[in-house]
Design a binder for these strands. Structure first.
Length: 638
RNA sequence: GGCGGUGUAGCUCAGUAGGCUAGAGCAUGCGGCUCAUAUCCGCAGUGUCCGGGGUUCGACUCCCUGCACCGCCA
């Protein structure tokens, strides 16, 4: 049986779970669920990283000891994942006794092999922080926390002979083009490696930092950061003798954000090599979410945190958004507005409505029972079935490469095709004539099958939704037990089985305030031959015409015709005017112009226009209207 | 200062391992259907594919260069 082992980084317990953590972990969950769907034996690991001076300080600040503090934050991470429908097999903590044992075993092994040595180094040390600073961390040569100059100090520490493995690593990355992916990050690592690699300091004296794992060969020192944290990937499997280790290593893929590329792309492989283990399969690196807080709703003056939106709009909608919106590897924008847009357009309108209309017709025409295929498949039917097969093939091709957005696009093309199919087959017409009963059965059955197969394809991304759909189609199954080879087969719905319509899968989120109702305009006399209408005087009086003075004018980038003006009408108005081909901004400033002052504001090229400048059209040319003598700004016109 | 990335439709972004009229979604306008969550289907658009040079029969795609923004390193 094929094996698949996926990891997230272990998260440092100096901060609460946020978007970045959530994305990495959800991605790993999707990969895990997808490989289970394909029938792999899988293992999914996440956890927390709990040693180091920052934790000691944070704990002190909270009036706690480091372990209690780490317990608390670690618990927050552990509790967050189930709420996002993440199903990890193991949650490791670097304070777990078996982790500590494995770290020490590997340190000893590497030490015995001669790749760890003892050495002195000099550096700038802040007595207040009890740590060394690099020059660039200092502000005006001073410690940023204590505002005092660090002292030069010498310290002895243990170093990992990383430089020894530089050429090996370069060769390995060159030999395995997809070892680090996407390619941009592979290139970045190779760029690092063009410079000589320094050895890695891996210890801290206990007198300075006691909150760590003691070195097995020197009890006056603890190991620092990397030999502690990175080793979790094997310690969680019970290295070296555990059955999980034998089963799942090296069928492992790591998932990280780009900020920890260097430790995972350089330190970790050289450590693995020094420890004598086989290398991981892939290091998968993703980008950042830029949070647009301007587009996050605010209630009670409090900014909504992205993770709160998972409970507000549903976990599956949240997961769908993250996976559909970000191209793995690139940065993406996150906002509540964009989430709601995806939810409405993709989930409510396309997916949810297709399911809803399918079940409604099954209800109406066949008393809610799955009908048989009774007519020979037409070209229309076959095309749709092929579209489903293509979607499945695309999902199988893309998800292993972390091409989630492409996989989802393929599924959605299939949903769109199904919606088109409904229109073309027009079941409501077939239902009118008994002669078309067989055809109607086949059409509805085809639609039910499409819903079923797409539900299975969606399961790794939106497990809850998949379960709901399948349950209502009468083939209920826990999402983790679905298998593409069986459950994803076409035509496997049970004939005569009752389906249940139920609530909407994704109710639309209403965002727009209802359009202001247009005043029903009173009938207006219309002259023959489409000439100007005659307007009652009352309506003319509704126009607020004024004289304005142009205070400022500039071209709107990327537009030939539009100028952005600031006009003094007694009050200042921003106006977008389409006179850029006949007038330059310079010649407009200071001019008096005639304006409609009570026009509904409109957005042009992204700029709000709060009025309209009047011009006379003389063929191609536009002439501004101006009072014969200057008048005061805002003077009314009648 | 060095390295890397990004710059494509009003907005958010795909895409092209060089080739006929450059794509999607949203937003906009018009039309159609009525099974459905006022949903769905069809049609209509708009782009100096950041600027400038070069290679080529041909560049949005390759090379050089400039600008803007972002990241990493020193």
């Amino acid at each position: 049986m094929n094996h698949f082992y996926i990891t997230t980084p272990i998260y440092y317990v100096n901060a609460e779970p946020h978007m970045g953590h959530a994305y990495t972990t959800i991605v790993a969950d999707v990969m895990n669920r997808f490989h289970r769907l394909l029938g792999y034996r899988t293992f999914f690991l996440t956890g927390t990283d709990e040693h180091g001076d920052k934790i000691v300080q944070a704990a002190r600040g909270a009036g706690m000891d480091p372990k209690s503090y780490a317990d608390r934050i670690s618990r927050m991470f552990r509790d967050t994942w189930p709420t996002l429908n993440v199903r990890n097999d193991r949650f490791i903590r670097t304070t777990d006794p078996e982790h500590i044992r494995v770290v020490q075993a590997i340190l000893q092994h590497v030490y015995d092999a001669g790749d760890i040595y003892f050495s002195h180094y000099r550096g700038l040390y802040c007595v207040g922080c009890e740590r060394f600073y690099t020059e660039r961390e200092l502000v005006d040569g001073k410690c940023p926390d204590h505002d005092r100059e660090p002292v030069e100090r010498e310290e002895a520490n243990y170093f990992f002979r990383m430089s020894k493995y530089q050429q090996w690593l370069i060769d390995t990355i060159n030999d395995q083009p997809a070892l680090i992916r996407p390619e941009r990050y592979r290139n970045e690592v190779l760029a690092f490696l063009r410079e000589p690699l320094e050895d890695l300091c891996i210890s801290r004296p206990k007198e300075r930092l006691a909150w760590g794992i003691p070195l097995p060969f020197d009890d006056q020192y603890v190991t620092y950061v990397w030999f502690d944290a990175l080793i979790n990937y094997v310690s969680a499997l019970g290295y070296p003798d555990g059955s999980l280790y034998r089963e799942f290593w090296p069928a492992v893929q790591h998932t990280i954000a780009k900020d920890i590329l260097k430790p995972h792309g350089i330190y970790w492989p050289t450590m693995i090599k020094a420890a004598g283990l086989p290398l991981f399969q892939h290091l998968n690196v993703h980008g950042y979410w830029k949070i647009d807080e301007g587009k996050m709703s605010k209630s009670k003056g409090k900014v909504v945190r992205p993770l709160d939106l998972a409970s507000k709009y549903g976990v599956d909608a949240f997961r769908y958004f993250l996976l559909r919106e970000m191209v793995f590897g690139l940065d993406a924008n996150f906002s509540e507005e964009a989430l709601v847009q995806r939810l409405n357009a993709d989930l409510a309108n396309d997916l949810g409505n297709l399911f809803s209309r399918t079940l409604a017709m099954t209800d109406k025409y066949f008393a809610g029972k799955v009908p048989p295929f009774t007519a020979t498949a037409t070209e229309l039917d076959e095309q749709l079935q092929q579209q489903v097969a293509r979607a499945a093939a695309e999902v199988v091709a893309e998800v292993p490469k972390f091409g989630f957005h492409k996989a989802l696009m393929a599924i959605w093309e299939c949903l769109n095709a199904a919606n088109r199919y409904v229109d073309h087959a027009a079941p409501w017409n077939l239902a009118k004539h008994p002669a078309h009963q067989d055809r109607l059965k086949t059409v509805i059955r085809t639609l039910l099958e499409v819903n079923k197969v797409t539900a299975v394809l969606i399961a790794p991304f939106m497990p809850e939704t998949a379960e709901k759909i399948l349950a209502r189609l009468g083939c209920s199954k826990p999402s983790l037990e679905l298998r593409l080879a069986d459950d994803g087969q076409w035509g496997t719905l049970e004939e005569g089985r009752a389906v249940s319509k139920g609530e909407a899968l994704f109710p639309r989120i209403e965002t727009k305030e209802p359009k202001p109702e247009r005043q029903a305009s009173p009938p207006v006399a219309q002259e023959a031959e489409g000439r100007s209408r005659l307007l009652p005087f009352d309506r003319f009086k509704e126009l607020d015409l004024r004289v304005g003075v142009v205070k400022h004018a500039e071209r709107i980038p990327k537009s030939k015709k539009l100028l952005l003006l600031k006009v003094d009408l007694g009050e200042e108005r921003q106006v977008v005017a389409g006179i850029g081909q006949t007038h330059t901004p310079e010649e407009l400033i200071g001019r008096q112009v005639l304006m409609v002052a009570n026009l509904e504001p409109a957005k042009l090229m992204g700029y709000e226009s709060q009025g309209m400048i009047l011009v006379a059209e003389d063929g191609e040319r536009l002439r501004l209207l101006t009072p014969e003598q200057p008048v005061k700004a805002g003077a009314s016109v009648s």
